[in-house]
Amino acid sequence: MLEITDLTVRIADEEKEILRGINLTVPKGEVHAIMGPNGSGKSTLAYAIAGRDGYEVTGGDILWNGQSLLDMEPDERAAAGVFLGFQYPLEIPGVATMTFLRSALNALKKKRGMPELTTPEFLKLIRAKAAELGIKDEMLKRPLNVGFSGGEKKRMEVLQMSMLDPQLCVLDETDSGLDIDAIRIVAEGANRMRGPDRAMLVITHYQRLLDYIVPDKVHVLSGGRIVKTGGKELAHELEKSGYAEFTGKAA
């Protein structure tokens, strides 16, 4: 279970706090959506969970399975089961996708006290997962994300997620820049990850993605606070009325 209590976060070098007291609980087995206007702090929340440098937690806590993530390095959080799907996955020239995936997987296995995969085991696993997402061998041979289209990058994020087998999946604007076919593929990949042992936090500006990844709960984030929580129908209401009501309230 993910439990976020009274979380305040500011970005280094900036006085103002971006998150101003977030309280959020996502039990295992549930998918929660965070919706909100631009600048409401959605990505800040994602980065705070994953432990990005420069996102300074000034108050509150983030507990995952009862353990605080705050003192952990990003790779330790990954080992604890946290996965962040990036809004803008980075291109890493000169690092082959396969090499990267294998290093990441084996690093996690090592930290989790599990045996590393042999080469045949790894190849078998990655081929199966890649096929599910329509990722061709040729893409796996290229440097990580280099020259990939927006859709290919997001599919690669989902491939990484399914390979690394996290228990807490945070998807940051996974739908941004994607056409409807690409959204469907990515959402199917994410839906395959749903299960009783996994919690998922889907961050999005638009309701569209939530037609495919149907959430158990929807939270509206505005001005660094969660201003409303509801069921999946809340997403549809927002689609009609927009965020004006909340931005007004927050200001």
Binding site: R52, E73, D75, F100, L105
Partner: peptide, 12 residues
């Protein structure tokens, strides 16, 4: 880039 790699479990 460092954060991206580390977020996948790769040590610093």
């Amino acid at each position: 880039m460092l954060f991206y790699l580390r977020s996948r479990g790769i040590p610093l």
